[in-house]
Each structure stands twice: as C-alpha cells, then as structure tokens.
C-alpha cells in the first residue's frame, strides 16, 4: 500500500514537469515581457524593473525556468503584480471561502444525484423517467449565467430572502447566510448533469448478470438497487466526483464573482483581468498538483469499494 503510494507520487513527477513546462511556455514565452504586459497597468517603472529582475527576463530561458522551479518548490511566487500582496498569502486566504461553499455543495449534489439516479433508473423507460430526463436536458441548456442572474435578482434583490452578496468573518454566518443562495444555484445547475451521468452508471449495472442472480435468489428490488447495484455503480461515481473536484474549485468562480465571495475562483478571474501572471501561474501549478493528489486518493478509494482492484 505505502509502496504503491510512493510509486504513484514518483510517477507524478513527469506529469508535474509537463505542467510546469506548459505554464512556463505559456507565460514566459508567449506571455512576453512583463514590462510590455503591464504597460498601462503599472506606471511605476521601478516596480516593473523589479519584476523583470525577479523573473530574470533578460537571462536565458533555462535560467528563467530555474527561477520558476525554485518558486514552485519554495512556494514563493513573490508578490502580486497588481496588489503587491504575497501570492502565497492570496492562496491561503482565498481557499477557506471556496471550501465553505464547495464542501456542502459536493456532498449535497452527490447524494441528491445518486438518490434521484437510482429512483429514475428503477422506473427506466417509463414516462417519469423520460420526463425527468427531458427536464434535465432543458435545465442543462440554460446558461448558468441566466440562473445566477435570475436567482440573484428574484430571491435576493426582489424578495430579499438572501443577501445580494457579501461575505462575513465567521464560518457559521457565511454558511447560513452568504453561502446559501450560491449553494442552491449550484445545486440547481449541477444536479441535472450528475443525474444524467449517474443514471447511465446505474443502468449499466442493472443489466449485469449478477443482478439477475440476486433476483434468482429472491432478493427484493429495493435491496438490489441500494445494496447490489449501488455498491458497483459507486465505482464510476467515485471516479467522476473525484475528478470533478478540482474543476469545481475553479468552476465556482462565476458564483464567487456574482456573490462577491473572496474565493479562489474569483481570484482567478481578477488575476486574468489584471494580467496578474504570478497569481495565475501559482494557481495553475498548485491546482494541477491538487488534481493529481485527488486522483491518487480516488484510486485508493477504489480499493475500498472494489476488491478486484490491485494496487500494484
């Protein structure tokens, strides 16, 4: 088990190196000279000189790459180009608000979608099934922007049930007050695709031979669905949920922006708007690392669910 984890971490290195190269090529080669990028954004020539020196712009590319690698390893990306805040500080302070929204969202959406998927798959082919699927398709077709704009306008602005936006200091206040509407909107948007996906996973399992065996020994339909089918369907569901995790972190950026939640997603947009390269670079690299770690966790979770998996 530990040998497996060590080997997997070891195998991540080439991928990580690829990510670093990609980011480096993108920002140092295509991104060009920060003086050029920052023209019109930072008027202080001294500051620009400082940035140029930090990045080693005038030096050969391998030196620049070395600087970048050192930044990653030491987690020191310097200061943001626009706010002068330390990049590491930005990351640390932006993560908690994002998690406040994402953790409850992840659990709610997964469990609701699994429950609905089992129910819909049970009545597969019926009118209910087709109606639910149709609603999902239509619901999926409306832009998330429209949901946010309308929900914010109606429930916060017009009806005043929720604050229009903002963020507090205590976790409890955020969870019960500011994060509510964003979570509801995210649920509305994300349940439809998950339901559709999980339904296919469940349907794949329903047609397996072992379900017929369970029926042949007299197991009831409910138990078949909740014990036999769900345990097997949870294998692809885990893959999906885990692999969607990092994108969710970034994917919530629209919500964070609309509701002024000071999270990672909003930070990404701000950084892109301001061409704040250090922040984008740091975020990209660390989120990629997080993705790889999450994938490893997913594989370890398989082992718990599926005895056929051999961790070699």
């Amino acid at each position: 088990m530990w040998a497996y984890i060590v080997r997997r971490l070891w195998q991540m290195l080439p991928t990580l190196l690829g990510v670093v190269l990609l980011v480096f090529v993108l920002f140092n080669l295509f991104g060009g000279d920060p003086a050029y990028v920052l023209a019109g954004k930072i008027s202080n020539p001294e500051q620009i000189d400082n940035i140029r020196r930090q990045l080693g712009v005038d030096q050969p590319y391998y030196v620049q790459l070395g600087i970048f690698l050192k930044q990653i390893v030491t987690a020191d990306f310097g200061a943001s180009w626009s706010t002068n805040e330390q990049v590491s500080q930005i990351l640390v302070t932006r993560l908690p608000p994002s998690l406040t929204v994402l953790v409850p969202l992840l659990f709610l959406e997964t469990f609701i979608a699994i429950g609905l998927a089992l129910a819909v798959a049970y009545v597969r082919g019926s009118l209910t099934d087709r109606a639910v699927m149709m609603v999902c398709t239509v619901g999926l077709s409306i832009s998330i922007l429209v949901y946010i704009i309308v929900f914010q306008y109606v429930f916060a602005y017009k009806l005043g049930w929720f604050p229009v936006q903002g963020w507090g200091n205590s976790l409890w206040e955020n969870l019960t007050r500011y994060a509510l509407l964003p979570i509801i909107i995210a649920l509305v948007v994300s349940i439809a695709p998950n339901l559709r996906l999980f339904r296919t996973f469940v349907l794949d399992e329903i047609n397996q031979d072992y379900v017929r065996t369970a029926r042949a020994k007299g197991v009831g339909e409910n138990r078949i669905m909740w014990v036999h089918v769900l345990r097997n369907a949870s294998i692809p569901i885990i893959t999906h949920v885990m692999s969607a995790l990092p994108s969710l972190l970034i994917g919530a950026f629209l919500l964070e922006r609309f509701f002024s939640i000071p999270g990672i997603g909003r930070e990404v947009i701000l950084a892109v708007e301001r061409s704040d390269f250090p922040v984008i670079k740091a975020l990209t690299v660390y989120v990629a690392i997080a993705t790889m770690v999450v994938n490893l966790l997913a594989d370890l979770m398989y082992k718990a669910v599926d005895p056929r998996v051999q961790l070699k």
Partner: peptide, 22 residues
C-alpha cells in the same frame, strides 16, 4: 420473491459475471 431462491433456484452460464464482484 419468496419462491425464488427458496423453492426454485437457478445457476447460470457465466459464473464470473453472475456473482456480484464487490
């Protein structure tokens, strides 16, 4: 359901897929 497995039971061609793998 009360007949199946208790009074009449059945085995199948592919034992590999007919048993629940998990």
């Amino acid at each position: 359901q009360d007949v199946r497995g208790a009074e009449i039971s059945m085995i199948f061609q592919e034992p590999m897929t007919s048993l629940n793998p998990v």
